[in-house]
Amino acid sequence: MAPTKVVAEYAKSGRSTCKGCGKAISSGSLRVGSSGKGAGGFDMTKWYHLDCFPTKSNPIGSVEDIKGVASLKKADKEVLRRLEAGASSSEDKKRDCGSCSPSNDSQMKKLKVTADTKDGEVEFSDSAIKDNYKDATLTPNWKNFRTVIFNVKGDGLHDSAKIAAFDFDGCLARTNVRITGANAWSLMYPSIPKKLQGLYNDGYKLVIFTNESNIERWKNKRQVAVDSKIGRLENFIKRVEVPIQVFIACGIGDLFRKPSIGMWALLKEHFNSGVAIDMNQSFYVGDAAGREKDHSDADIEFAKAIGLKFYVPEDYFDVK
């Protein structure tokens, strides 16, 4: 585990679990977390009740060192002083007892993978990351978390407060659902490579959020569906010559499939190194805007649910 930082906030829902005692952390209550990189290189935050937080492995010199403390109530800031170095030995023993230690195997088995699409909170552990999607093997540098396939952060992909997010099919690439193959696509608009390169050079992190239910539906041809989708995305990234973070929602009507915001929650909580996203500068581009010719309104509703500025590709890529 990489060096961690301590964060405090009010629980966004009642679905997170204390990594010390294994019990639920109630919605709205004060929780304290240790945030850092997991073994797989992903951003991980382990949440605890105040009295379960392991100060021995996460020493705190001052409450002011805790991320998020400025947004807490004055009374809760004072309560957090129990975590400061020099707290009474009886409190240290309570917090650092064996049953509350994050290294206790019996407690680690109780860790839950949860998501709340209302507040965008998603928690996961390294053990939930897999190299396959059900019976389909993923190519190197691609992983699976529940019903999402994503690419591992590669060279040049920088985290940023500015997010430029895009749909894939019908937005960046022209594809046909009836035709498979890594090469069965073409650029949607000629201006796309230059536009994406400009965003990258301006400090934006480029992200693709794409639905692909065929990976779930094609039970007898799932490997074909996986190879086709990943192959197209990899070839697209090579064509535009900029690094892009990709999330593929494979489920049907679940919390990760657009317009639900599960994929955005993953980016925000675990794939941006804790960098706060500037919603005023970030945006999303997609073709499913609920217009008469559109197949759905999933993209515009996805952007609305998150609070992102939204553009249709014809406008964003200056199609005349």
Rank of each mutant, 00 (worst) to 15 (best):
N141R: 06
G231A: 03
N272W: 04
S57L: 09
G290W: 12
I60K: 04
V32A: 12
G68R: 09
S57P: 00
D169Y: 12
D119R: 03
A289E: 05
E84P: 06
D299S: 12
V226N: 04
Q245T: 03
D92T: 07
A182H: 02
R82I: 05
N272A: 04
K110Y: 03
V242M: 13
G231L: 08
K130I: 05
G198N: 13
V152I: 07
G154D: 00
I163R: 01
R82S: 12
K268D: 15
R178V: 05
D105V: 10
K309R: 15
I192M: 11
I248K: 06
I244F: 12
R174D: 14
P140Q: 05
G33Q: 00
H270D: 01
F168Y: 08
S57I: 15
L111Q: 14
L206K: 08
L199Y: 09
A305N: 15
K46V: 00
S13D: 13
A288D: 08
D299A: 13
D96T: 11
R291A: 01
K134G: 05
A303G: 13
G290R: 11
S29L: 02
L83Q: 13
A288Q: 10
K19E: 04
F271M: 08
A161I: 03
C100L: 13
S29P: 00
G40W: 07
A75F: 12
A164P: 01
M279P: 03
V285F: 07
D169M: 09
K19T: 01
D227V: 02
A265Q: 07
G274T: 01
T45C: 02
C18R: 12
N272F: 01
P3M: 05
S71M: 05
P190R: 09
G198Q: 13
K194T: 11
N220V: 02
A85F: 06
K23E: 15
A70K: 13
S90R: 03
K268H: 15
N144F: 06
G86P: 01
L199I: 00
F236Y: 11
A288Y: 15
A265N: 10
G307A: 02
D76N: 08
D159I: 02
E216K: 09
K130L: 07
I306M: 04
F168R: 07
G181W: 03
K67F: 10
G98V: 10
A161H: 06
H270F: 06
S13N: 14
G28N: 01
G33T: 02
G251S: 03
N104C: 06
K12A: 14
A39P: 03
M263T: 10
G290I: 09
G22K: 06
S57W: 11
N141V: 03
F271N: 03
L50D: 11
W218I: 04
W47N: 00
S127W: 08
F302H: 05
